[in-house]
Amino acid sequence: MSELSNVQLQLLKEVADLHEVPEGAYNLRSNGKSVSRNTTANINILTKTEGSGIDIHIKDGTVNESVHIPVVLSESGLQETVYNDFYIGDNCDVLIVAGCGIDNCGTQDSEHDGIHRFYIGKNSKIRYVEKHYGSGDGSGKRILNPVTEVYMSEGSTMEMEMVQIKGVDSTHRTTLAELKRNAKLIVRERLMTHGQQNAVSVYKVMLNEEGSSADVVSRSVARDDSYQKLDLCILGNADCSGHTECDSIIMDNGRILAVPSLEANSVDAQLVHEAAIGKIAGEQLIKLMTLGLTEQEAEEQIINGFLK
């Protein structure tokens, strides 16, 4: 990755914990182009012939492998929509790391809209990590509008970790999932907004068949004058179980709208939602201050723990 600038390397570190070329399959996209790629015997990556993006094919029975597909944008004013489709075979156990880092030092808005679609084969286990990060002090906005669609076959499991902690001015993320028999979806979202940032996160999870289950948990912190809307919806269309939880800390002049919703279309659907919004508990600050921290340090510790 020697052709990458320091800014790009920093972005890569933030979104994919990458310090060097990852092991296994990867595709690195930088400023609108694929700049390096590696495939393995079991994982193939192909550039789409129509439109922008890649197709990732993972063979049946691929286990203990990983795919990294980080995207970095460091030119101001770049706007792109990219389609990445994952075709995952049966009986796989694979880690997929996606993420987008935008550095915008210019005056024009930079925007990356990644559309990720996952077609997960029977009994496959996928862990998906997606991190979004923005940096740069230009007046141009850093905008990310990801769409994630997950189609889960019988007995498959998807664990998603979605993290956006810093620097993204505007985001509208949409996650849709459809689950078949005994499929299981686990989502852990972590969101923090600062300044004038605006973040909307919408989930729509359809539990379509017997034994399917979903656990969608969002933890967020809204600071300064930022705004968040968390819209977590689970539909139970069969004998299934679903749980959603939004747990938010509000600070300064932040605003949060939490709209967890459930729709049961089967008498056997068991659905639960929880939502809580509040400022940091005074007694938590006091306890850490009695251990010698200042109020600001205590606040940071509490938020770091909460978003860990």
């Binding site: 306890k287 010698g292 510790q301 723990g305 978003l307």
Partner: peptide, 18 residues
């Protein structure tokens, strides 16, 4: 005693030890 989401026992003891 106060409870915290996400702060582990080790974190708390480290904060305490400074």
């Amino acid at each position: 005693p106060v409870r915290f989401k996400g702060i582990t026992v080790l974190d708390l003891l480290r904060i305490a030890a400074g």
